[in-house]
């Protein structure tokens, strides 16, 4: 969850009892395969349905937000009072969104505008919201995507190398996980900048768009997430290594490392997968901070600019895009789930 922002160590267990939830599927189910309703692909279909509901809800929440703003919403959508929109523009926006009509009609017209992709004009960026998003979404997706991959690599490596090893190694692994999950991104980013950019001078502080410039921001996002994901993978890995199939694989003469990679890993990544869907949202939150810290272009920076200048259309636009990303990520995660866990296929 939440989390963001980084999340607490028990974030995953928070939902353990919630068997009805679509998105935060039961984390404990990986090892047992029990308490999961319906077949795998039906689960995907349900996620799509819930996703549409979530998008509608997000649009509604932002509609309420626009209306809760002090001042005339038509002026806000036309670029805000600060940009002194002309009377003609305000009148045009009023007609387009129906701000002179009853609230219910306004709401329906607002939804209609959204479905058609009309998100309004951004006063802080002086262009259409759609164009701002089109421009800034790729750097952010690149950043969050590489952070997610990096987090997975770290989490899996940590589980493979430290679960059920010598006590000192295990403690070191789990201690580091707790520590990294507790690191706020802005602070970790500052420490990384200080060490690798200013003191050692290995990496330029603002590396631009290249791969080198991506290293520190991606690490800043990935390390807390990895700490948090590997705590979940660790528990699951630990439980998987106690299963009878591990003993039988060892009895067949498979090496300990082989059992870990070929058998236990598949079980251990399931809860982490579910977490990944959630993580996309938290990574985008983190991107707001990291993009500010490393002066990178992206959705986060655009959003922060919009918030500080009370640029409502852009705030709404970015919010909806984030909700959409979250929904798509969860659908992808559910599909991965079916691929990773064959038990889900046979039951459908």
């Amino acid at each position: 969850m939440t989390a963001t922002a980084t999340a607490t160590a028990t974030e995953p267990t928070r939902f353990e009892d919630d068997l009805d939830s679509d998105f935060s599927a039961d984390f404990s189910a990986g090892a047992t395969g029990a308490n999961r309703r319906g077949g795998g692909w039906r689960r995907v279909a349900r996620t799509v349905g819930t996703g549409i509901l979530v998008l509608w809800g997000a649009a509604t929440v932002t509609f309420i937000a626009v209306n809760a703003m002090p001042g005339n919403p038509a002026i806000a959508m036309a670029g805000g009072a600060g940009s002194h929109p002309s009377k003609a523009l305000v009148a045009a926006v009023t007609a387009q969104y129906g701000f002179d009509k009853p609230l219910v009609i306004q709401y329906l017209m607002y939804l209609l505008q959204l479905v058609q992709g009309h998100l309004g004009f951004s006063s802080s960026q002086k262009m259409q919201v759609v164009d701002v998003i089109a421009q800034s979404i790729w750097p952010t997706l690149l950043l969050t995507g590489s952070a997610l991959v990096l987090a997975w690599v770290i989490a899996i490596a940590s589980s493979l190398l430290t679960v059920r090893r010598r006590r000192a190694v295990s403690s070191l692994g789990s201690g580091l996980e707790v520590l990294s999950a507790a690191l706020p991104q802005y602070w970790l980013g500052i420490v990384l900048l200080e060490v690798f950019a200013f003191s050692l001078g290995w990496i330029p502080a603002t590396g631009g768009t290249g791969v080198v410039g991506l290293i520190l921001p991606a690490l800043t996002l990935a390390i807390p997430l990895a700490g948090f994901m590997s705590q979940v993978t660790r528990d699951e890995f630990d439980a998987a290594l106690e299963q009878p199939f591990v003993v039988s694989a060892r009895a067949r003469g498979m090496s300990d490392g082989g059992v870990r990679v070929r058998h236990a890993l598949r079980h251990a990544i399931l809860p982490g997968l579910t977490l990944s869907g959630w993580a996309i949202g938290s990574l985008i939150s983190g991107a707001v901070i990291v993009e500010t810290l490393f002066s990178r272009n992206g959705l986060g920076g655009a959003l922060l600019g919009a918030v500080t200048q009370q640029d409502m259309p852009l705030t709404v636009g970015v919010t909806l895009i984030v909700a959409l990303t979250y929904v798509i990520a969860n659908i992808v995660v559910d599909a991965f789930y079916v691929i990773a866990d064959p038990r889900l296929r046979s039951r459908s």
Partner: peptide, 13 residues
């Protein structure tokens, strides 16, 4: 579920 789709920081923003 809908509120959950909003990362906490975004809701705060």
């Amino acid at each position: 579920e809908i509120l959950f789709a909003f990362p906490a920081l975004l809701l705060a923003l």
